[in-house]
Amino acid sequence: MRNLWNLIVQYHIALVFLILQGIALTWFVGSHGYPRGKWVQRSLEWQGKWDQRMSQWDRLTELDDLNRELLAENATLRAELHTARRDGVQSTYQGAEVIRSTWNGASNPFVLNKGTAQGVKPGLGLLQNNRVVGRVVEVSENYALALPLINKSMEWSVRIGPTGPVARLVWEGGDVTRAMVYDVPRSASFAPGDSVVSSGFQGYFPSGLLIGKVADETPEFDGQFLTVPVTLAADFRAIRYVEIATVQGRMELDSLANSNGQQAP
């Protein structure tokens, strides 16, 4: 016992280092790319207030007010359009301002100025002019934390073309304009410039929304499936306003899928 104590005393700095690294790395692995929980909600509320105050400095022009009005109008018109089309899955939209965003890291979370008080919930999809941007992962009363397509730990269910096979879109880091679509069958026919759209299977977005276009590069072949490079449609370096999409009946669809233990690819 005394030897153990002596050992601890002798190497106490290394021990403290290992303990602190253990805590930090557990936190990092546990939350990186998908930050959830109480600490995120508290930080979000505090940071949101501060970021909102900071962004007010940028809102000293009339153009900003005009942007807001147009955003709200766009959201209303889009909802009416979907209702008029009588889509299988209906959606409602509301505008939100991005008060904080990054695009240099691996997770690139951004903060929106809408929260539970405005009906925002985790899992809702985000669009920018009908192009898929990301989804909400955590919400406080007045702010929401969202993860964009350019997040290394997220996968998105997509189609190449409106009737193509369903595949997985993953951002691999680095270039924010480029992602990869995995598990595309060899038999699929597509060409550079073809649209890559949401499948609607994950329930965050309606189907058929533009995500990107097939890049003019040769797809990789792993012996079974193709991996297709895609140029993303949304400009993540210039996002200021987004629309939050609520897919109607999502709860019902989720519970149906969960009861069978199924998930979208």
Binding site: P35, S43, Q47
Partner: peptide, 15 residues
Amino acid sequence: DMATLEGGLFMSSAV
């Protein structure tokens, strides 16, 4: 980390 929602990345690096 708390401020940037990076969850442990800066703590680990600073340590």
